[in-house]
């Protein structure tokens, strides 16, 4: 089957070269950056992957349980080292293997969306950490004091996100950004609600949930408190992070160590 794919590729390329002056699609695709890289394309690519590729590579591209399709989430591919290379492999397959390819008449957009999907499932996106995870762990629980707000595997406190599996969800660059500029992206769960009572008393806390009539917070003492919006209290959302930036507190080397430690935090080490 693989051989047949190879023959078909040659035939199409030849035909394209012979029949028109326009550049064959084959060449254009290889020389172009992937133009379909939005989250929408990730979704479309995932759908296509699940329909056409998951029998061998598993539903989430992590390898088939009962077949030989390799894990495609490691960020390293045996037969390609670029988007264009992945495009080629997906279209043409790999000779003498079970990898067939979608064929030369598959539309370019779908192939690029598959490439985008594969990049999105790369758990090591952004490269390999340069720091020491062991040193980062010491800093996290020691002088860094990160565990005064964050919890890892049941150890630590509750005033920031639980980081037990953060390495599965965040790229290295995102972890670095979160350390130096925590306000870059603050999920609504980590906004602060500042409530002022009828007698002027002020209560602040992390916004655990809010709806049309009520909101609930965790205050600095980690107490859970619930408020009615129509019970005489006024409230204000503070859409900033409660975490300080660590650009000046930690050296670059220390930050690298911390990032390496955070990146190592996964459900299965």
């Amino acid at each position: 089957m693989g051989t047949r794919c190879g023959i078909r590729w040659t035939a199409v390329a030849l035909l394209a070269a012979l029949t028109s002056g326009a550049a064959p699609v084959v060449t254009v695709a290889q020389d172009t950056e992937n133009p379909y890289i939005s989250r929408l394309d990730v979704r479309a690519g995932r759908q296509l992957f699940q329909a056409r590729c998951s029998t061998c590579h598993g539903l989430n591209a992590a390898g088939g349980n009962e077949s030989t399709g390799p894990d495609l989430t490691t960020g390293r591919f045996r037969h390609a080292d670029s988007d264009a290379g992945l495009f080629r492999v997906i279209r043409d397959g790999v000779r003498s293997t079970a990898m067939l390819g979608l064929g030369a008449d598959a539309d370019e957009q779908s192939i690029w969306q598959l490439v985008t999907y594969l990049r999105s499932v790369d758990v090591t996106a952004g490269g390999t950490p340069t720091g020491s995870a062991a040193a980062g762990r010491q800093l996290f629980t020691g002088t860094g004091g990160c565990d005064r707000c964050h919890m890892v595997n049941g150890q630590g406190q509750r005033l920031g996100p639980d980081l037990s599996t953060v390495g599965e969800r965040r790229a290295l660059a995102e972890l670095e950004t979160a350390l130096v500029n925590p306000d870059a992206e603050v999920l609504p769960r980590w906004w602060t609600m500042k409530a002022t009572g009828p007698d002027g008393q002020v209560v602040e806390g992390l916004r655990m949930d809010e709806d049309t009539f009520t909101f609930r917070i965790m205050d600095a003492d980690q107490q859970l408190r619930a408020f009615s919006k129509y019970g005489g209290w006024t409230w204000e959302r503070v859409q900033r992070s409660t975490m300080p930036g660590y650009a000046d507190t930690f050296t670059a080397a220390e930050r690298n160590d911390l990032v390496a430690y955070l990146f190592s935090l996964r459900s299965e080490p």
Binding site: S38, R39, L40, D107
Partner: peptide
């Protein structure tokens, strides 16, 4: 929303939206 446009061929009985949003 961010609106995206995409090429899509009509196939009877298949989704035919020509893009998406996020």
């Amino acid at each position: 929303a961010i609106f995206f446009s995409r090429d899509e061929d009509y196939q009877e009985g298949d989704n035919f939206t020509g893009g998406g949003t996020e």
